[in-house]
Design a protein around this nucleic acid. Sequence first.
RNA 1: GCCCUCGUAGUCCAAUGGAUAGAAUGUCUCCCUCCGAAGGAGAAGGUGCAGGUUCGAUUCCUGCCGAGGGCACCA
Length: 528
Amino acid sequence: MSAKDTILKILKKIAPGSDEVDIYVPENQGAHYATNIAFRLAKEQGKNPAAIAAALARDAKESAPAGFFAKVEAAGPGFVNFYLTPAALNAGLLLIFKEKGKFGAGKSRKDKVQVEFVSANPTGPLTLANGRGGFLGDVLGNVLKLSGAKVEKEYYVNDTGHQVLTLGRSIAAALGLIPDEEAFYKGDYVKEWARRHSALVKKMQNKPMALGERAAKDFLGLIKTAVGKKAGIKFDRFTSEKAIHAAKLPQRALQLFRKGGWVYESEGAVWLKTTAFGDDKDRVLVTSEKLPTYFLADAGHYLETKKRGFDAKINILGPDHYGYVKRIQAVAKIVGFKRSEVVITQVIRLMKNGQEFKMSKRKGEFVTFEDLVSEVGADVARFFFLMISPTTHMDFDMGLAKERSAKNPVYYVQYAYVRAKGILRKAGAGKMVPKTLALLDTAEDQRLVRQLLEFPSVIEATARDYQVHRLARYGLDLAKDFQQFYEKEHIMGEAKDIKNARLALVQATAIVLQNLFAVLGISAPSKM
RNA sequence: GCCCUCGUAGUCCAAUGGAUAGAAUGUCUCCCUCCGAAGGAGAAGGUGCAGGUUCGAUUCCUGCCGAGGGCACCA
């Protein structure tokens, strides 16, 4: 049982009726943990929060096991601050040594969940926004897995349909075989592909769909390389839209909708009553020309996922798909997902010399995700995106990114790890002697220990609210605490017991950092 | 017009309704005979505007200002 759990248990005993007790790590207060429960009790009982806090502090100390609290005190307008004895706090380190690579893993999720992300049309290179969603989905999947869920990371490939047809025609137009059109893809990559396959293009110019599919296959291959080999984003499955159609899943979804009474016909088209789920209008499934819409294909895709046994689906989309959220959530409900979440990542605004640079994939004017990764490296690109909340509209300057890549915070975190490993290499991994752990009693020791023990909570919170950037921030905090510890406390010259205890702490730090890197998909370098 | 997201140090970003709003970067001052200085100590610098809710608001509500995105029988 962690120290935090013990405090929780004590509070429940002395302050009954307070089910949702919040215990947090206060900033700049010196205390190890704190709670604001007195405020809630004060409201319920109509009493003064400071008086309640004082009573709680007294009772907590009395009903705690001997040697657990060093001090419990009421502070400010009604906070209760808990100071643990070094022995009580440091006992938590034993769990790190026991669990090692599994420290941080939990059981808060027991469901089978699919995370769908990127899913960009294979009609060209990936954008920065695709990359943002890519890292997010990759790490979120890792977090959920670590929290006990069965996870599948999926890329849904729109390898047929209108966009692919447009791609085929764009390629023909690139060689001047058909007149150019406004809607065509005009990037250099289209021209290049057309030139390289000119014989094939000429032969297939009357079959633009087949031509588009052929090119899409190549582009998908490039995407897979960029995402997997270069950026280290791992997908478990690439699901083909074409295969969804071939399996008649859209039709089966339609049948299901009809059976549930969610469908009606109007003006010759077939509609789904998405307004029943909060959408502002109903949506067309089959057009008056008897053509299935993309939406219906997507419904087929959701159905397919459900049929493969998933309880939950998380779909990470770009901001241009915001209007799509309500209807896809309606589908998720009808096909029977227990949980369905859509995460919208915000745009990345590209800046050049302080001026906004408008990107257009269609016009081929944009910085590709691959450019960024090869320019600054996978670790830097990852951390760059992962330390920022997905709802932030970030400004991105490639020049600045290059300049700052050398000073990227990821190096700070990795350096802490390198340093820890360096110490262990030099000293030899110390013997972990449990009874010496209580000797770690300086402010720096204690801060570092507490931070290490927060790791499982960080993972659990992230599995709950998907705020993945919390992990990157945690890495920075932990690295800082370690660097301060390193600067202030010595190891080698100390007496045997304290040396062993400090080495154990260094080793624990290395373990937690390593586990963190694994979740974030960042490398754990032994040298820099 | 309606809907969504965002507005926080010079800059780029944090902050489950909590205490003195944190890092990084940039600027300034110190610290390498000492476990790796890609480090540490310190200084200056910030919540768009106006109300409201309450013990307490960057966070919740209303209005305004500003930025981005979405509002097809397209995908």
